[in-house]
Design a protein around this nucleic acid. Structure first.
Lengths: 106, 106
DNA sequence: GATATTGGTAAGTGTGTGCTAACATATGCC
DNA sequence: GGCATATGTTAGCACACACTTACCAATATC
């Protein structure tokens, strides 16, 4: 259910840029905003989306809001993609075997 | 670059439903459309998005267009998420070690 | 307490997008 | 050829959403 949020969150290019920047090092909103092509409020809104997706955490240092990557959302995302991957692989194996059987009927 | 498409494609609930249905078994457009809350053209449009994201393939059986899961998009998606995961883990290890050093200064 | 710094929030706007209905296209069968 | 079946495509519409500007809230510093 939260995978939905994570996928949608990372689907936006700006949000992915913010997230990728946070993967390198945690940063405040202002630090994130400079170097970005969008305004500070826009960054703030994106951070909110990333936060509700469980991809990012906030801690306060005085008046600054420092954001960092959060594992929780990543866990679900990884679990979902791994399941997709495993299922797809086994499905293809089944298909390959079926085709082999078709080629050598007996 | 195509990861962007895959993430955005799977971010939509309807498209995820279609994709999850295709993971169980390949199906034609009409088969996918019944049981879905949206019209057949809508399904067709979603399939186009999934196709350009490399998540789905089409083969024709007479007049029917049968869709099935495609590995290509899944490979990129998995690679991206794995990288996120690995980087996040090592970052947290570094942070933990740094905190340990801070606790025992010498 | 006044002022400055840092961020979140609200209102408004333009573009993207998911949907439907109507039409166009392609294959199969008579 | 003509009709039926199955699907893609187009036009139009409503809504979501990313963005900016203006404003509000909280903490730090004097």
């Amino acid at each position: 259910m939260s995978v939905e949020r994570a996928l949608q969150a990372l689907g936006d290019p700006t949000r992915r840029a913010i997230f990728d920047r946070l993967r390198k090092a945690s940063a405040s909103v202002g630090e994130l905003a400079e170097g970005m092509p969008v305004s500070r409020p826009a960054v703030s809104q994106h951070l909110k989306v990333l936060r509700t997706a469980g991809l990012v955490r906030e801690r306060r240092e005085g008046v600054r809001h420092v954001y960092q990557v959060e594992l929780r959302g990543l866990v679900e995302l990884r679990r979902y993609v791994d399941r997709l991957w495993g299922d797809a692989l086994s499905a293809f194996e089944r298909a390959a075997r079926a085709q082999d059987r078709a080629r050598e009927p007996k």
